[in-house]
Design a protein around this nucleic acid. Structure first.
Lengths: 195, 195
DNA sequence: GTGCGATTTTACAATGAGTGTAATTTTGAG
DNA sequence: CTCAAAATTACACTCATTGTAAAATCGCAC
């Protein structure tokens, strides 16, 4: 059998990671310079030293360049909720889960990507889908963690908490991240005194 | 000056309305039959008896065929909120505004369109944008109607109420509209006891 | 280090949405 | 009827995305 070295990284893995990195960096630069829609895949491929066809070997679509950085967020969110104590209210648990995740945030890069996303209707729309996925992850985790609560109530809790996260991120991006995201999140949750 | 007959409908207006109707109907039929993505604009144009180029004289994009039916909803929503008495809480006002608008709903057609929208990622995403527009409309109306409340609180109120509408529509579509949308909406709002 | 199979890259061609342009037809007001 | 505006069309183009198949590269076995 083939011996896989999951700790060591072969030349293949390294080149793949490097190319991925190269595509992401040049695309981000081009998006910031010329705008998302105005940047063609040909331009990205050129800037990354690959052919246009090869681009699709790395990303499913142009959009995915920006989506990739937040892949796995729903799962991390779910796990964070599951780590919370079931003694507190679900809404408090989700707020705490949020705060726990935010410590791993690269604020500078997040702001750059956020600005690009807000510049295009297409990207704004697909970004909303990300919140929907977070909401679903939260809902499922809440149902597991608080089985005595009704699904209807937990669905509303998930909607409300992820909505608060969205409002916090919006406010944070609006002022270019002057105050930390945590502050905005805390503020948004102040007005959520559900049940 | 040119005398415009806004009451009478000229041949031009009638033909335009008829063609619009024809495009919408044949597109909906094709979407329901073959699916949204699998239906090309050529097919829609053929089925509507127009050229592909003419299609774009009626709709900005393929998506817009489905978006058109809910155009003006944000404005109607804003107006409905402004009609509510400022004596009740903002959240109650928005709930009542929702209920008022729902009486004008064509449930059968809404379900057909809803099913198409849920069948495509692209459509689901742009549908989320509609909720965002509703949320903005609600927020602006609330700020006008309850100037003594803070904008932060009203922003959360708008988010929460439109979110409840979304959950209600989801649940309603999930069970193919067996119970009226109003019931689902009332249920969703039960869990919103903000402040 | 050679060879072989798997992975990666590429060229080429095609589909389908959307846009610009300019020509042609239809409508309606005078 | 006559002419300007509105509506329709053909044609050609850009761009994202996908299919196919050939070519290049890698890494393990020998």
């Amino acid at each position: 059998m083939i011996q896989h070295r999951s700790d060591q990284e072969g030349l293949r893995q390294r080149k793949r990671r490097e190319t991925l990195q190269r595509i992401t960096e040049s695309a981000l630069r081009l998006f910031a310079d010329r705008g998302y829609e105005a940047t063609t895949l040909d331009a990205i491929a050129d800037a990354s030293g690959i052919s246009r066809r090869t681009f699709f070997y790395y990303f499913k679509s142009k959009e995915e360049i920006l989506a990739a950085w937040q892949k796995g967020l729903p799962e991390a969110f779910r796990a964070a909720i599951m780590r919370e104590s079931p003694d507190q209210s679900p809404i408090d648990a989700v707020r705490n889960a949020h705060l726990g995740l935010l410590t791993h945030y690269d604020a500078a890069r997040a702001l750059i990507i956020d600005r690009i996303i807000r510049s295009s209707d297409l990207l704004r729309a697909s970004n909303q889908m990300k919140y929907l996925e977070l909401e679903r992850a939260a809902f499922e985790a809440l149902c597991e963690r608080w089985p005595q609560k009704t699904r209807e109530e937990l669905r509303v809790t998930a909607m409300v908490s992820v909505g608060a996260l969205r409002l916090a991120i919006d406010a944070w991006a609006e002022e270019d991240g002057r105050r930390p995201l945590e502050d905005h999140l805390a503020e948004a949750f102040v007005h959520l005194k559900i049940k």
